[in-house]
Design a protein around this nucleic acid. Sequence first.
DNA 1: GACATTTACATAGATATCTATATTTTAGGC
DNA 2: GCCTAAAATATAGATATCTATGTAAATGTC
Lengths: 169, 169
Amino acid sequence: MNAKARPDKTIPEAGLASDPALFKLLTEIDMIAHLASNEFARLLPPPLTEAQFGVLNRLMRLDCKETISELADAFQVAQPTMSSTVKKLVQHGFVEIAANEKDARIKHVGVTGAGKAIRNETIKIITPHLNELQTEGPAEDWNAILPALTALRDFLDQRRLRQMQRLAS
Amino acid sequence: MNAKARPDKTIPEAGLASDPALFKLLTEIDMIAHLASNEFARLLPPPLTEAQFGVLNRLMRLDCKETISELADAFQVAQPTMSSTVKKLVQHGFVEIAANEKDARIKHVGVTGAGKAIRNETIKIITPHLNELQTEGPAEDWNAILPALTALRDFLDQRRLRQMQRLAS
DNA sequence: GACATTTACATAGATATCTATATTTTAGGC
DNA sequence: GCCTAAAATATAGATATCTATGTAAATGTC
């Protein structure tokens, strides 16, 4: 990202006035996700990437081990993508693989001490930025709009599952 | 994306109950963007990619030509990324480059007839899916929550510009 | 007006993702 | 029990993105 701060050409609202509300919403959501993702990626302590942090964060929040496929499903990425992410986490010593006694195909991914340390370090780095967003950002009632977005996400997720089942039949 | 439709392990709400509302919101937004992006990418008529469609759509909506840098800024991607996207659009014959008479460094990107055709074809493909989202998706008042998200996006965008200026000083 | 700086774009190399497919292990039908 | 199908993961190859840097053209300073 090398963009220079040029004369403000920012569009006040995503899309055109004529676009349907849902299309504008999705456009806006895409831009927010993109902006937040870029900012977040820059803050991460090397060698941690967004995908890698996501895995550490999830396993620590849920306080459990998960398999490659479970993680791939949770983050909605392809299984080889998660295999690659986990492989790098292993190389960095942030997770370790445990074999399943009953099924030799399955690998359980668990966070190591080093993994917990860098995840907590990341949280410390991120927190002030989130706080700035809270205090200096727009004063909206985020809890009020959260259920609508959760419903939308759930619908898209269900539709995705339906389409996959259609392909498999 | 090879995920199988496994027993429903969907988390009802993004993140943990203990997470701050804004963090949950950003997590939810990231998941929606991811889901929508995946679905959209699958629907695009080859050889069009999401980034390529975005450029065609923008130039046609604004009914103008823009430079590589202007497009990179608009989509918040690095300039070489947009150079690459435009190069592929040129190879497919969807845009054409016009030189600037006064400044030989500048390239103006304009949509061709073939570009307009495939953009309109894409709209036709997408529309039924958007309609399904409208009719079968959650019945929320999207117009009501749009301003809050626009404000959030604007804040993140402004913060990004501030940080870039800080680096340049 | 010469020279350093800035600007617009291109190129090179690295990474993360995807799809397609291979490999290994388990489960099921006969 | 055997043999096929399904499941979990790995490998290979392609693409899109990034950062760092190169190149050419315009700008500005003295």
